[in-house]
């Protein structure tokens, strides 16, 4: 490995080297997202009926949900760490990861609604009533509302330790509820969304036989890029919160 400190004349290079070592994943996120937008709009995609060019939404809409799941996963990890250690720093981490995860989930919901408007409503002439009954949409709405309640719950405590403890336990429940509401129930009952019985795709976006390799070379980097951007924004929120709560955390 190149050790810049051996060359005292290159002080500027040394600073750059240490900075890059700290922020390499932010640069990676930037590069992956530039690739996602460029490759996602220009590279070859499978020609499919109904979807047409809108298959490219895979790099944007689906990635929002992937990033949301990962951020919620990090959030519950910090909640469990809080319950094990009673360190309020983990409570701040859990809250901020849940907040950014919820924003990504909301973006996923809105983009899904736009996509569905053209591929379900216009092209498959589904009525609005049948789309409103769509189990994937109802499940996703329930999951997001459960996370909404997490923030309501947090806001209703005056005792900081009680708030941290109860909301950490609730966060575990909220994460557990994601699985039946988003992943299991829409696949048991019929749904227009890929993954439902009758839609001939078992596990959309993850099944190797199901997703075309031309899509995968953009999709996987896109998931990593969007997730890293979400983590980056979360770290900023955590650092701000730590600055605010400096008096509460004794370190």
């Amino acid at each position: 490995m190149f050790n810049a400190s051996l060359y005292p004349n290159f002080a500027a290079l040394n600073i750059l080297y240490h900075n890059v070592r700290k922020i390499w994943w932010k640069i990676l996120s930037l590069l992956l997202l530039v690739y996602t937008v460029t490759g996602g709009l220009l590279m070859d995609v499978p020609r499919l009926f109904i979807l047409n060019e809108s298959i490219r939404n895979l790099y944007f809409h689906v990635c929002m949900w992937f990033a949301m799941m990962i951020l919620f996963g990090i959030s519950i990890f910090h909640s469990i760490r809080y319950l094990l250690s009673n360190n309020l720093r983990f409570d701040i981490n859990a809250r901020q990861y849940a907040a950014v995860g919820s924003v990504l989930g909301l973006l996923g919901y809105i983009t899904g609604a736009i996509w569905a408007n053209y591929t379900w409503k216009t092209d498959q002439s589904q009525s609005l009533a049948s789309i409103l009954k769509e189990p994937k949409l109802i499940g996703a709405a329930i999951a997001l509302l459960i996370y909404g309640a997490y923030f309501v719950l947090r806001g209703s405590f005056t005792d900081i330790d009680k708030k941290a403890r109860v909301s950490a336990v609730y966060n575990i429940f909220a994460f557990a509820m994601l699985f039946p509401s988003i992943w299991i129930i829409p696949r048991l009952v019929g749904s227009l969304h890929p993954g439902a019985p009758g839609s001939d795709s078992g596990n959309p976006a993850l099944n190797f036989k199901d997703i075309d390799s031309r899509l995968r070379i953009v999709f996987y980097p896109a998931v990593i890029g969007w997730t890293l951007l979400g983590v980056w924004i979360t770290t900023l929120k955590i650092r701000l919160q730590l600055l605010k709560d400096k008096s509460l955390i004794h370190e």
Partner: peptide
């Protein structure tokens, strides 16, 4: 043109 616009927005936000 679309790619240029999207990239500008993305780079601006980042």
């Amino acid at each position: 043109v679309v790619v240029a616009v999207c990239l500008t927005i993305l780079l601006g936000l980042i």
